[in-house]
Design a protein around this nucleic acid. Structure first.
Lengths: 239, 239
DNA sequence: GAAATTAATTGATCTGGATCAAGGAAACGC
DNA sequence: GCGTTTCCTTGATCCAGATCAATTAATTTC
């Protein structure tokens, strides 16, 4: 459960096209940080530095230390997502971020690059864009949660994960779920039992193949249809 | 259903302490816009100008034109909230914003003030802060929706409305709900019937007085307790 | 101000998912 | 390797909230 830090040369970084750090054109804009599975990038209550984090590889869960009972997962972050955008004006983080697998992030001093120097319009535009996009992403997540049927939520999550892989240039229909069933349940606002049964049901309907955490989507159209709330067929119990 | 526009002098504006427009110190940074009840500030699909909107009086509902069925409400906005923060990097709005009562907003050209001139650190800091805060607000809304029990969600909404009034310097326990039961239902992700029954139940438990849309919170502690998921007593049916 | 809409309430029934309760299967520790 | 822990699955029951159906109360409209 340790982290290691090293210098990073943004101008040679493979992500420079989509990274604010690189947009600043600054060679030492960022540090690369390695985080082991189950380790935290930061905890709720930790002091906020002027840094945001860009995921280079791996995945994370973002969670709120629950007032009651178990942790509540408020999101999953995959490369090339950003973390820490919700705390730019805060002294302490409100959420905890845990690596779901061995991961790497770039740490970017946004404050320095946004304000220092007289003109960095690209950089600033990127930061505004990032923040605005993050707002839309959260809105979308909330929309998903207003679906009363767990089926719709699950379909939405799977498609979202698939889409994000596609955006990153990976094959969208086959991947490994980095999170546990329990994490999925918490994110969707349902119980773990419900997740288990839903996955079984979806498998029976041949929407995907699933073995442990390896999934291969077979019928994306049906998933899309389902995510929009058109109940496909009977329910959980019936089949 | 019309809107009227007039010039606004930020330096004399009563909201200048909490407004980015005023932080820019620019006299003609903003326009004041009056919007009648039921009129739209903007519709999904409308072109995005370089403006964000600061609510000076009144209230709005933010909704996504639903793919299926009726509209889905993704949020309520009250003075002194901002609108349009989710579209800074977009050409078209994704959401529609409708006034719940006759309202006034200031329209602020953020792009101009963020980039033009060589130094407006306060202004930029404000915009970043606004965006970051909006992300946290959305995260909080999503957290509310992960509560499986409608009771918790309702309690959370009422407290949120109350809190926002308190933040704005108004009396927190007595106010008028600007939105319909139907809007509340959509926002909470439950049916209108459920909202109606919940309000009745809460009233029976003496958590508040309610006549039409005028509410007076009596037991804020109980509401807080409930919002955290500690079921107060029996359920909807029993009492 | 009466008719026509629309919003809100109330009741009865049904069901999806929670909850309670065991088992089984990987991963982890030594 | 074996035991331990954690994760996941499966079954049975129950209940909160959806759905269907009607009635009542507010707004609009003319």
């Amino acid at each position: 459960m340790s982290t290691s830090i090293e210098r990073n040369n943004c101008s040679e970084c493979e992500h420079r096209m989509m990274c604010v750090g690189a947009a600043a054109g600054n060679r030492d804009a960022s540090q690369r940080i390695r985080i082991e599975r189950h380790a935290a990038l930061y905890h709720a209550g930790d002091a906020v530095s002027d840094h945001i984090f860009n995921i280079r590889s791996g995945s994370f869960k973002v969670l709120r230390a629950a007032t009651k009972g178990p942790e509540q997962i408020i999101g999953f972050a995959l490369a090339p997502d950003f973390l820490g955008l919700d705390a730019l004006d805060r002294r302490a983080h409100a959420n905890t971020v845990i690596a779901l697998e061995d991961s790497e992030v770039c740490s970017i001093n946004w404050n320095r690059h946004a304000f220092e120097g007289r003109r960095r319009p690209v950089m600033r535009a990127s930061l505004h864009a990032l923040l605005s996009r993050e707002i839309r992403r959260e809105q979308r997540a909330a929309l998903m949660l207003r679906n009363t049927h767990a089926e719709q939520r699950m379909a939405d999550l799977l498609l979202s994960l698939s889409q994000r892989r596609a955006d990153y240039g990976h094959v969208p229909e086959q991947f490994r779920l980095p999170m546990s069933r329990c994490d999925i349940a918490s994110y969707l606002g349902v119980t773990a039992e419900c997740v288990s049964r839903l996955l079984l049901l979806f498998k029976k309907r041949a929407l995907f193949e699933l073995r442990r955490r390896d999934i291969k989507l077979l019928d994306m159209d049906a998933l899309h249809h389902m995510a929009l709330g058109h109940a496909a067929s009977p329910g959980l119990v019936t089949s």
